[in-house]
Amino acid sequence: MSGSALLSLDRLAVTLPGGVPVIHDATLHVEPGEIVGIAGESGSGKSLTAAALLNLLPAGSRVTGGATFAGEDLLGLDRAGWRRIRGAGISMVFQDPTAALHPMLPIGRQLTEHMRRHLGLSRSDARARAVELLDQVRIPDPQRTLRSYPHQFSGGMRQRVAIAIALACRPKLLIADEPTTALDVTVQAGILALLSRLRDETGLSVLFITHDLGVLSALTSRTYVFYAGRVMETGPTGALLSTPRHPYTAALLGARPHGAAGVGSLRPIPGSPVVPGQAPPGCPFAPRCDFATADCTSAPPEPAPIGTDRLSACPVAPELEVTP
């Protein structure tokens, strides 16, 4: 799309070992210093897209299409190339910070060890940078934290430490896979503020994966809505959430608690999400869609532009009048 994009995926498709197709023709880009959201339910392929970007897919997966990061073709990388990209290029934080932290090693060692390896810093330089990082993610008393162990921290603090570790080698892109889903709202607010500040101060790009549309609204500038491994709709987050141009986006908005008190009910999406590998031949959302026509069941619709900066993979999108 844009020549200057930090990350760009061009019709990326992923098939898991066993021939289960999980991502179809995903086209996506992230600009330097931009926070981009990916929305979707479980099984939508949003986390697998992230896994593909770090070569974390199960062995035997097949990836086709294009993926470039900072001008480099990701799909052609060898082991050494991936090692360079991970850490200094793209890094990741997960929903469960405990999975990213070694329980038996002090935080300081986990932070400094790979800085010394990757950036070639001396022990004292690495230590200084570790303190700086912990301070940057607003951990009180960084000096003491270096000697502490993960279990001594609350979930929110652990996620901050995980972010500090992810930032250690100065990545250009941070992939955050539901990093606040397991956290309380007040703690989540802190993490969102942190990511936003890091973007402002260091020009970090963030690909933020979540199912919480409120979080997307607050944090991201553009959003991709995934369903059954396809991009259903994309555009500036504000416009996308206020005037959805895909029935699935509208349905997601309707299913979330939104209105005034005492309304008493939500509008659930009928049916259940597609099981990977069992998608219907046409639009994967057609069986659950109020607007589906006979055309929708023949072939999956291509994302088509709406206006200048939006795409929707729904043929009825232009006439779609949906109230979120």
Binding site: L54, L56, R83, R86, M92, H102, L105, R117, A166, A168
Partner: peptide, 19 residues
């Protein structure tokens, strides 16, 4: 730079190697 250890980079490497 030889064998990645458990404490190696951004959690991603660790996970990848585990797989």
């Amino acid at each position: 730079m030889s064998e990645p250890t458990m404490t190696e980079p951004p959690t991603a490497v660790d996970l990848a190697d585990r797989r």
